[in-house]
Design a protein around this nucleic acid. Structure first.
Length: 228
DNA sequence: GCAAAGATTTGCT
DNA sequence: GCAAATCTTTGCC
């Protein structure tokens, strides 16, 4: 069995890296892979995988930007549970967003997966994007832009609220996280304030809790600026 | 029971 | 640069 390449053995993402400090977990998640096995209902039956290049941290009930600010509710209850679990919600009535629950069950926290760089299953991603109501727009995006935003990640990977509660650290889950390929160095990381949370007010709007892989062509944004 | 807002994306001006 | 699309969740009466 080769140690690198498409047939390299994959390792589930270690749950212990999500069980502690969420900011450390955010940095650890960059470079890891999001993987979805093919399903019978897929238009194109192939495995989809992408390298996580952008995440945001939402930490504790005091964080006025976090869904946990309401306390436990029917929607956010998994945030108050164990780490490694998927929390998917619908935003603006049309886009789904994928979160990975972090920290022990005693503290509500999660990491929003904001962008991934496609690694495998690009055709299936395109088909999934095209199947959404708004499709892929008037022009097909380049491969690197197929999942370059939180709503786009879920569209490209066919993720919706039914995935909430799924264990992303289990090797048997159809949707899961896998550790970065063996030998791959940790990516250069840029930290910025979070996006789209002006409603939260200070100090939350200024907390540098958005983490990006520097220079990735797949980070969110209309015209991502190269961080040379 | 109803009103308001939202962890976004796209297209048009 | 701005507004529309679209519907669930939360907050208040």
């Amino acid at each position: 069995m080769p140690r690198t390449g498409p047939d390299a053995p994959s390792r589930p993402f270690p749950r212990e890296l999500l069980a502690g400090d969420t900011l450390a977990a955010a940095r650890a998640l960059l470079g890891a892979h999001l993987v979805r096995d093919p399903a019978p209902a897929d238009a194109i039956r192939e495995r989809r995988a992408g390298r996580i290049v952008e995440v945001e941290a939402y930490i504790g009930e005091a964080d006025r930007a976090s869904h946990a600010r309401f306390g436990p509710t029917a929607r956010n209850r998994v945030m108050f549970g164990p780490p490694g679990i998927a929390y998917v919600y619908l935003v603006y009535g049309m886009h789904h967003c994928l979160n990975v629950v972090s920290e022990p069950a005693t503290r509500p926290a999660a990491l929003l997966v904001r962008a991934v760089e496609p690694v495998a299953g690009v055709a299936a991603m395109r088909a999934a994007r095209a199947a959404t109501r708004r499709g892929t727009g008037t022009r097909p995006p380049p491969d690197a832009r197929l999942a370059s935003g939180p709503g786009l990640v879920c569209a490209a990977f066919s993720i919706d609220r039914s995935h909430t509660g799924l264990d992303l650290c289990a090797a048997t889950s159809p949707l899961r996280l896998e550790a970065a390929p063996a030998g791959e160095p940790g990516p250069p990381i840029v930290e910025t304030p979070r996006i789209g949370i002006d409603y939260a007010g200070e100090p939350w709007t200024s907390m540098p809790w958005r983490f990006l892989v520097a220079g990735s062509p797949s980070v969110s944004g209309r015209s991502p600026r190269a961080t040379a």
